[in-house]
Amino acid sequence: MKRVINILCLGILLTAVACSEETPNIPPFVGSGEEALETGFFEDFTESTVDATKWAICPANQYANWKKFMGQIPLESYVPVDGVLSLQAVSPAEYGQPATNAPFCMGLQTMKPSGLVLYAFRYGEVTVRARFSSTGDGAWPAIWLMPVDENSTTWPEAGEIDIMEHYNSEAWIEHAVHYTRQGGGNASKSAKVTASTAGLSLSEYNIYGVRKTPGKLEWTVNGEVTFTVTQAQVEADGGIWPFESRDYYIIINQSCAPMQSYGGNAWRASWLPSFDVLPYEMSVDWVRVVEEE
């Protein structure tokens, strides 16, 4: 794959205008604006429907907290408005189901539940312009990467890269990476980014990203590097670095699962918030990947 750093002039102009009007702290796309996007991925949700050749609904899975309430809302109900896709956690009454049921949550990914890969990449930079406008018990918006071979491995043997997660009403977002240890067991590294760091404003749009290169992961907020993890660091701590031998697909989702702390460790609780606090929402303006060799 060729290394490409590019975006069309029109894309730069429109994005710059939108950013200057809505969130002046957010930079426009980086690039000369004179080259076409030859490789990578770009989605700006300007069509009236979500492109089924790029996105599939996150399926439900009762054993994964983030997936427990996914999959109930059909893809045709994912309707972009003015170039923004709203991902929500809502009361089932919004879709004609009894309000005593569990919440309905929205999430998209670039791999179908069948395993058909719609888009994945190995090296490059993924950036997502998004905001979460609702917070509260159980609010859990996330932007992340998972390996295309996850179903043939035991989590997190093939790795997980969390670009952005926000929990409940916390005054920070989190970056994280998950992997396994030599001899067995799970391991992770993470960092919290607080409000005002890298221009982060939790009530506004921000650009969340990660650059994946051989032996290194670099997370960014609004173009500023906010966390770095290297293969050397992971292996020095007794971990296994899984990120060189497989491709990763993209997930954007608004889950609903409360988090509680026990003895300093965070766990997802079994109870649910009142539907009176819903909807929770993450708005996604665009998703972009520039691939590298």
Rank of each mutant, 00 (worst) to 15 (best):
Met1Phe: 14
Val4Phe: 13
Ile7Tyr: 04
Ile7Asn: 03
Cys9Met: 11
Ala16Trp: 09
Ser20Gln: 14
Glu22Met: 12
Glu22Asn: 13
Glu22Arg: 12
Thr23His: 05
Asn25Asp: 09
Ile26Lys: 09
Phe29Met: 07
Glu34Val: 05
Glu35Leu: 15
Ala36Gln: 08
Phe45Ser: 00
Glu47Asn: 05
Thr49Leu: 06
Ala52Met: 08
Ala52Pro: 04
Trp55Ser: 00
Ala56Tyr: 13
Pro59Asp: 09
Pro59Gln: 10
Gln62Trp: 02
Gln62Ser: 14
Lys67Arg: 15
Pro74Arg: 00
Pro74His: 00
Val79Ile: 08
Pro80Ser: 00
Pro80Tyr: 00
Asp82Pro: 00
Ala89Lys: 05
Val90Pro: 02
Ser91Ala: 03
Tyr95Val: 03
Gln97Leu: 15
Ala99His: 00
Ala102Leu: 10
Pro103Lys: 10
Pro103His: 10
Met106Phe: 02
Gln109Ala: 03
Gln109Lys: 08
Lys112Trp: 01
Val117Ala: 03
Val117His: 06
Tyr119Glu: 08
Arg122His: 08
Tyr123Asn: 04
Tyr123Val: 05
Glu125Met: 12
Thr127Asp: 12
Val128Met: 15
Ser133Thr: 14
Ser133Ala: 02
Ser134Gln: 15
Ser134Ile: 12
Thr135Trp: 09
Ala139Tyr: 00
Ala139Cys: 11
Pro141Glu: 01
Leu145Gln: 04
Leu145Ile: 02
Pro147Glu: 02
Val148Asp: 00
Asp149Gly: 01
Glu150Ile: 09
Thr153Ser: 11
Thr154Arg: 11
Trp155Arg: 05
Pro156Leu: 10
Ile161Lys: 03
Tyr167Cys: 05
Ser169Ala: 15
Glu170Asn: 11
Ala171Phe: 07
Trp172Ser: 15
Val177Ser: 09
Tyr179Asn: 01
Tyr179Ile: 01
Arg181Leu: 12
Gln182Tyr: 09
Asn186Gly: 07
Lys189Thr: 01
Lys189Val: 01
Thr194Val: 15
Ser196Ile: 02
Ala198Lys: 01
Gly199Lys: 01
Gly199Met: 05
Gly199Gln: 03
Ser203Ala: 15
Glu204Asn: 13
Tyr205Leu: 07
Tyr205Arg: 07
Tyr205Cys: 07
Gly209Phe: 04
Thr220Pro: 01
Thr220Gln: 09
Val221His: 09
Thr226Met: 03
Thr228Asn: 00
Gln233Cys: 01
Ile240Ser: 10
Phe243Leu: 06
Ser245Cys: 10
Arg246Cys: 02
Asp247His: 04
Tyr248Arg: 02
Tyr248His: 05
Ile250Leu: 13
Ile250Asn: 04
Asn253Gly: 07
Ala257Asp: 04
Pro258Phe: 08
Met259Phe: 15
Ala266Asn: 13
Trp267Cys: 10
Trp267Phe: 15
Trp267Gly: 08
Pro273Phe: 02
Val277Arg: 06
Asp285Cys: 03
Glu292Met: 12
